[in-house]
Design a protein around this nucleic acid. Structure first.
Lengths: 227, 227
DNA sequence: CCTCATTTTGACGAAATCTTGATCCTCGAT
DNA sequence: ATCGAGGATCAAGATTTCGTCAAAATGAGG
């Protein structure tokens, strides 16, 4: 569940946001002042922070500046102040959005979705691995024990499919449907040929490595942990 | 210079934004309707689009949806409408921000900076390089091992696209839609011709250098580290 | 209108990849 | 021990994708 940290000294506003956001499937954490806010970002690792401008110990901008020294978590300012300088200051210091109270809840949640959408695109782990086998989805390169394999795109897709399932068995028809489409569920022979080629290339990189691909007779294929 | 596309049917607003944004060191382009807007995004390749809600031919949301089918350029809605549903609709369909007229210019420029900061790619690095290959975005000059290449603008854009991706693989259709627009995703042949020309020019600068552009059959192209 | 650089198309051989069939192997059931 | 089903391996042909060259179209500038 996506975690949101709400930072505001007014209890009523915190409670209102907590209830409202939880109704939108977010996990809400709270902080009452700047010090606690910074602390909680470390503890909770929220996906987004909602920050009030006026806090008892330090103002929102100061909190934001401190935060930006080491964190890039999205921050939405939510405050009663509507002065231009405040907005510009907040936005230029790393805030991702700025909303003025009174605000509408639908708008807030929409803007939260925008901020989360932005941060999500940056962080997607492109590497799948199993034992000494590693597949990089960004570069489209596959290595076994650091030796690069030269695979065709179909071979690559097949290996990716197995890697996604870890050591779980993948049934014949599921592989066929996924790679060759629903009209090819019969062509069991493709699998023998292609996995044969992949095994040969694995052996080329490291003799014996081909055995990482295991067949369960009549059922399907899976990856198997090698010693 | 950072390019911004302003889409609005009212000439007065376009002129006002043009003057204001140019004072902030942006290069401003204009479109009066949705059709022209989509066209200009392809031609001009702006770093950001400012979109009005009400356009003569189609409304802003429709333009946004069409745009999002192939482009991830940041979009800021700028409109007289202040209804919640409009905001939520725009934001959830891929808009990055939503401002209601009358707006303050400092706030708009601050929000533009936020949006550009998010799209991070271009804004910062004036020089892209990979191995002995180097491309200067300020001067539009490309060199390999310090020898200058004379490239046409399309060749330059293609090389820039690969350089931005480093050694990541760039799929055919992504290159095509990025350079020639979404109606050309089928014209695979362009890539062969153009990369052929670029390779020849690279070889002219330093024999063998053409091999820095690598093809993954059926998938796409990428840069490859040369010994 | 002409010129020149560039883009778009077409054609064709080369290379890579896919499909198919033949043959041999393994293992459990009879 | 034999048989048969599913699996592995190999290689030839079919097909797709690439790289290359060059001719035709386009279009900006003189």
């Amino acid at each position: 569940m996506t975690k949101i940290l709400v930072v505001d000294d007014e209890t009523s506003i915190r409670k209102f946001l907590k209830v409202s956001l939880e109704a939108n499937q977010f996990e809400v954490h709270e902080a009452q002042n700047g010090q606690e806010a910074l602390q909680k970002v470390i503890e909770v690792k929220p996906s987004l922070v909602i920050l009030d401008h006026g806090l008892p110990d330090m103002n929102g901008i100061e909190v934001l500046k401190k935060l930006r020294e080491w964190s890039s978590v999205p921050v939405i300012f939510l405050t009663v102040r509507d002065a231009d300088e405040d907005k510009v200051l907040a936005l230029d210091n790393g805030a991702d959005d700025y909303l003025t109270k009174p605000f509408s809840l639908p708008e807030l949640t929409a803007r939260i979705r925008v901020a989360l959408r932005h941060s999500k695109t940056e962080a997607t782990e492109p590497v799948l691995s199993f034992g000494k086998l590693s597949l990089n989805q960004a570069t489209h390169k596959v290595t076994y024990a650091n030796a690069e394999l030269k695979l065709t795109s179909t071979e690559y897709d097949l290996l990716k499919l197995l890697l996604r399932s870890g050591e779980k068995l993948v049934p014949h028809r599921m592989i066929l449907k996924e790679i060759w489409g629903p009209n090819s569920v019969e062509h069991n022979h493709y699998l023998r040929v292609y996995f044969g080629q992949i095994r040969k290339k694995l052996d080329g990189a490291s003799p014996g490595a081909g055995e990482i691909i295991e067949n369960e007779s009549g059922v399907g294929y899976r990856l198997r942990a090698l010693p």
